[in-house]
Amino acid sequence: MSVKTPVLSRATGLVLGLVALGLVALLSLAVGARSIPLSTVLDVLATRDGSDSAFVVWELRIPRTLIGIAVGAALGVAGALMQALTRNPLADPGLLGINAGASAAAVLAISVLGVTDLRAFVWFAFAGAAVAGTVLYVIAGRTGASSVRLALAGAAVSAALTGFTQAVILVDQNALDQMRFWTVGALARADMATLTDVAPFLVAGLALAVLLAKPLNVLSLGDDVGRSLGAHPGRTQLLTLVAVTLLAGAATAAVGPLVFVGLVAPHMVRVFTGPDERWVVAYCAVFAPALLLLADVLGRVMAREEIDVGVVTALLGGPVFLVLLRRNKAVRA
């Protein structure tokens, strides 16, 4: 049983989330192999001089931070949509095979076409994510597929594509060398050109998510009740798949697969928002990037050498996943 949260309180929480995101973004600009005082960061943001600190902030850390914000928002919202669509509290964007589709297309581009340029790599990865989403839709049933059928079809597509990817990299050393840096998930290797390439898809996916929040609220009551209230389950499922493909596909193409962000963020924000998907989507767009940037900052200071954010999210997300699993089991019991 959930407790309704007043609209004013939820709006206040969203504003506080934006403030927290701003503070974490400043931390991301200041912390690294070469730490820069916050006062210096603020100075070079206001006046871009020719100092070494200005170069580090503007050329290295601002692109990395912006990529983190965009990718974090995309994965958080995609996770919220996935959990609403499948009515599975343990679902995340990888459940639909989107990440696996991006990886399969990327390794195919490297092995068969010899692609090495990161910007071309991004387009192939995104195309693979889109194909995986299309295949899932066809397998699950094009009209009114049940949430269970979608989840099972997604697991099957993901397993098949993951097997294909592993087979290719086992027989192709060049593909293995190229893929091992991408598949771990990292913000450091992306740049502003990458963000520019994927930004239209991220914006389109976020806009579609906002429009789908209300229909998903209705369908949470069940397909039959949803139809009686004027909802269209088949159309909503299709558009949600499109939104998840745009968001998770573009994010994965840009930085590689990042686990647990889309799983954890919706659960954290529902403590404040309740089950209303309109607020869940808004909160995830703010708090998920804050979580991702914080994990990225931790990766810079956890060890002598920088740890990629994909490793950090996996290390932190594993225990959180077990907690969520136990909590879900207790609720069902």
Rank of each mutant, 00 (worst) to 15 (best):
A73H: 12
Q237H: 14
L161G: 02
R189N: 02
L206R: 05
V171A: 12
A159T: 15
V320G: 13
G299H: 00
S147M: 01
L324A: 02
G97V: 07
L75Q: 05
L239W: 05
V107K: 00
A11F: 14
R34N: 12
V269F: 05
D308I: 09
P266I: 01
V320N: 06
M302Y: 15
L108G: 14
V281S: 01
T273A: 06
A199Q: 03
L315R: 13
L294E: 13
R61D: 01
G13V: 04
G133N: 07
L118C: 11
F260H: 02
R270T: 13
V115A: 01
E305I: 13
T143D: 13
E305L: 09
T236Y: 04
A155L: 12
L291M: 13
D197S: 14
F201Y: 15
S53C: 08
A78T: 08
V271T: 15
K214H: 15
V15C: 07
T313A: 09
W123T: 00
F55Q: 14
L95A: 03
A20G: 09
R180A: 05
P215R: 03
V244N: 08
F201G: 13
L247G: 05
G249L: 09
V203G: 03
A213D: 03
V203K: 04
F181I: 11
I69D: 06
L238D: 11
S28L: 04
L26S: 10
I67F: 09
G141F: 01
L18F: 11
L221C: 02
L298H: 02
V301S: 10
D92Y: 08
V320I: 04
F126D: 06
A11Y: 11
D172C: 00
P257W: 12
V115K: 09
A243R: 07
V280I: 04
L95K: 11
A140T: 08
L152C: 04
V297T: 10
L113I: 06
V24G: 11
L212A: 10
G234C: 09
A213N: 05
L108S: 15
G154Q: 00
